[in-house]
Amino acid sequence: MELADLRTLVSVMEAGSITAAAKELNRVPSGVTTRILQLEEELGVQLFLREKKRLYPTDKAHTLYGYARKILAMMDEAEDRVRGMVPGGKFRIGALESAAAVRLPEVLARLHAGYPQIALELVIGTSRSLYEDMLENRLDAAFVVDMPEDDRLERMDAFAEELVVIAPEGHSPICCPDDIGRKTVLAFQGGCAYRNRLVNWFRAFGREPERIAELASYHAIVGGVIAGMGVGAVPESVLHLCRTEGILSVHPLKHPLCTATTELVWRRGMLSANMTALRQSLHRQDA
Rank of each mutant, 00 (worst) to 15 (best):
residue 5 D to N: 00
residue 8 T to W: 08
residue 9 L to E: 02
residue 9 L to M: 00
residue 12 V to D: 15
residue 12 V to Y: 13
residue 14 E to I: 01
residue 14 E to A: 01
residue 15 A to G: 11
residue 18 I to V: 15
residue 23 K to A: 13
residue 28 V to M: 09
residue 37 L to I: 15
residue 40 E to M: 09
residue 42 E to C: 06
residue 43 L to Y: 04
residue 44 G to W: 14
residue 50 R to L: 14
residue 64 L to C: 07
residue 69 R to L: 15
residue 69 R to D: 12
residue 72 L to G: 04
residue 79 E to S: 11
residue 81 R to N: 00
residue 81 R to E: 15
residue 83 R to I: 08
residue 84 G to E: 01
residue 84 G to S: 06
residue 84 G to R: 08
residue 85 M to P: 11
residue 86 V to H: 12
residue 93 I to C: 03
residue 94 G to Q: 02
residue 94 G to F: 06
residue 96 L to D: 07
residue 97 E to R: 12
residue 99 A to W: 01
residue 101 A to V: 05
residue 104 L to S: 09
residue 105 P to S: 03
residue 106 E to Q: 13
residue 107 V to E: 08
residue 110 R to W: 04
residue 113 A to K: 11
residue 114 G to Q: 13
residue 117 Q to S: 10
residue 122 L to W: 12
residue 123 V to Q: 10
residue 125 G to K: 06
residue 125 G to T: 10
residue 134 M to G: 09
residue 137 N to L: 15
residue 146 D to R: 15
residue 147 M to N: 13
residue 148 P to S: 10
residue 148 P to W: 10
residue 149 E to S: 13
residue 150 D to P: 14
residue 164 V to D: 11
residue 174 I to S: 06
residue 178 D to T: 11
residue 187 A to H: 00
residue 192 C to Y: 10
residue 193 A to T: 06
residue 195 R to H: 07
residue 197 R to C: 05
residue 197 R to G: 08
residue 198 L to Y: 02
residue 198 L to V: 05
residue 199 V to D: 03
residue 201 W to C: 02
residue 202 F to T: 00
residue 203 R to A: 12
residue 206 G to K: 06
residue 208 E to N: 10
residue 209 P to E: 00
residue 211 R to D: 13
residue 214 E to P: 03
residue 214 E to T: 11
residue 218 Y to E: 13
residue 221 I to R: 12
residue 226 I to K: 15
residue 229 M to S: 00
residue 232 G to W: 08
residue 241 L to T: 06
residue 241 L to G: 03
residue 249 S to L: 05
residue 250 V to N: 06
residue 253 L to C: 07
residue 254 K to N: 15
residue 259 T to D: 08
residue 264 L to E: 11
residue 264 L to G: 09
residue 266 W to M: 06
residue 267 R to P: 11
residue 273 A to E: 00
residue 275 M to N: 09
residue 275 M to Q: 07
residue 275 M to C: 05
residue 275 M to S: 05
residue 275 M to V: 14
residue 277 A to C: 06
residue 279 R to N: 05
residue 280 Q to H: 02
residue 284 R to E: 03
residue 285 Q to S: 04
residue 287 A to D: 02
